[in-house]
Nucleic acid binder design. Structure first.
Lengths: 338, 338
DNA sequence: GTGAAAGCGCTAACAC
DNA sequence: GTGTTAGCGCTTTCAC
């Protein structure tokens, strides 16, 4: 067998025995607690190195009746926004010695029990969730079991750091109205509690401008489902001349549907996405999109988690960032007569 | 405080006390072990539900002197390939009740100690690594501490499931040669042990065709660094008419560099990527790319991990899949006279 | 069928 | 400075 014999990992006791001290001293030494002479400390570290000892954080947590790991739930690993949030969370957590346990939603099927469950099983001390698919109610229940920080979505009674979706959707819609579009559709995601703000803001903005809103919900948040939904929109008799989508992936799907139908962007169809992903910035894609500053969102969520861990009694955090519309080349005035 | 009082989670003892049996019975009941009457079992489950008891998998592992969690290391969360591998791994692990702990490399800086360390700390029973940045030697050392499955990269003496990179790079290079290109450059990633196969295969294919290889290593695997490196390539006196890149992100960066320099793809520059990412399939991007079947790679890695867990003495796995060149519109014959 | 007791690797009083 | 002891939530002999 090429595999070497894997010896049972060294424990505190092994180190203590090797040095000839008690386990307590080893424990103290590794946690930097006072009460261990420098010599002893050196001897302990040397022995530990020799034996290949590494503290068992899991057992330590158990003994301490305390949970040091922070769990991060991500709805969609294929969406850059979540990668950005991860980056942000990490920079915030970097200082502390916290372990970060990631968990990704299995599929975008409207419930994240599996992923959340695995975080609970791993016995994390707090969960940062981006973006919860569950209802507000279930989220609030979850928060009773373990501290919860919701990113990207505001939940009453739960630490939340989110982006002003109403403002973002309004900016996107107004941009299209200002260009002269009147038949502006909205390609929404599935209608979960956390995802209604953008569609409502879109509808309100349309009505305020005297226009008729037209919202179609995609099956999920993927490019494929965006393409399917947009194909339906573009097949209508009075097809829209502009579409504002819930996220960039849906927008890219709509873009494919347009080209598949012989339409081009922005000449025949204006498109506004949401997320300002890297792909949206590619030459030839040039997607107008709303940037919700995901890295910063993640960073703040990390800070909020740290705060909550330090003070369980602190008031509920509720932070809101302002998104920003980035205008590129996927939007233009509608063609004459269309 | 809006936050409800968070009660200490119920334990086995609580359930046992509630039902009026010993802890052992509760333990047996939850693990489906024989020796518990159906009535008792029912009573136990009822009480557990009432009390909101959920088994502590971490403590169970500790007591069992066994590690049930599987750790998955991903090099780059922004690269779709890794999202695909994650999907594959999950489908393979789905049957089993194994916990999956994710860990993503902090930055692409040539060493993944941090991410690996966190997996060790979480006390996982096996690590699936995609793609290790460390040297073969360090990977082999790691494998002595905890079972390791390497995906995407073959490591001697370690369970590996990878794609035939030599074949992939050869196919890409030959495709460009066949189109008539002679000045074909290769944009490689940083030169880690695991990433040399593609560049070597490219060089060999060039030499075999009587052409002179020109390899430039990007600083990392991101689009930005691809853009910078490609800009240097395109600024050369005798600039290449085609570039084959280590991955799609680098290729997209090269594409940006081309357009920034007034060149268009494929008229002035042919481009072949690697990964066949979703972005590469977008209308207007149409990137010719090598598909390494990442989902299947991940699935097999998951299976390999399960096997290793079941039989530590089994022979080392070494699986290799054949990649596939997907030709799109980013490659064309070189312009006359160039 | 059921339960008592020891132990997993570690922490945290408290005493010496 | 250093060691003793009890215990975290659970599993696992082994005896009743």
């Amino acid at each position: 067998m090429a595999l070497d014999h894997r010896p049972r990992p060294a424990t505190q006791s092994d180190v203590a025995r090797e040095v000839g001290v008690s386990r307590t001293l080893v424990s103290f030494a590794f946690r930097g607690a006072p009460g261990v002479s420098d010599e002893t400390k050196q001897a302990i570290f040397d022995a530990a190195k020799r034996l290949g000892y590494r503290p068992n954080a899991v057992a330590a947590d158990l003994a301490r009746k305390h949970r040091s790991a922070v769990g991060l739930y991500l709805m969609d690993i294929r969406n850059e926004v979540y990668a950005d949030i991860l980056s942000g969370v990490r920079t915030a957590l970097h200082q502390d010695r916290n372990r970060l346990i990631l968990s990704v939603s299995r599929s975008v099927d409207g419930e994240d029990q599996g992923a959340l469950e695995s975080l609970m099983e791993a016995r994390v001390g707090i969960i940062i969730a981006a973006t919860l698919l569950d209802s507000d109610e279930r989220a609030q229940e979850l928060a009773k079991l373990v501290p919860l920080v919701s990113v990207t979505r505001r939940i009453e009674g739960v630490d939340s750091v989110h982006s002003d979706d109403a403002a973002g959707a309004r900016a996107a819609t107004e941009h299209l109205i200002r260009l002269g579009h009147t038949r502006i559709a909205h390609l929404a995601g599935p209608a979960y509690d956390g995802h209604t703000v953008r569609r409502e803001s879109y509808a309100k903005t349309m009505r305020d401008a005297g226009l008729k809103p037209l919202t179609l919900a995609a099956e999920d948040f993927t490019q494929d489902s965006g393409e399917r939904a947009a194909a339906r929109l573009l097949g209508m008799a009075d097809r829209p001349t502009a579409i504002f989508t819930h996220n960039d992936q849906l927008a890219l799907g709509a873009r494919e549907a347009a080209y598949a139908g012989g339409l081009s962007v922005p000449a025949d169809l204006s498109l506004v996405g949401y997320d300002n992903s890297r792909t949206s910035r590619l030459h030839g894609i040039d997607l107008t999109s709303v940037d919700l500053h995901a890295v910063e969102l993640g960073r703040r969520a990390g800070v909020a988690a740290l705060n909550r861990l330090m003070d369980p009694e602190a008031p509920i955090a509720d932070e809101r960032l302002l998104p920003e519309l980035v205008v590129r080349n996927s939007t233009a005035p509608p063609r004459e007569g269309s």
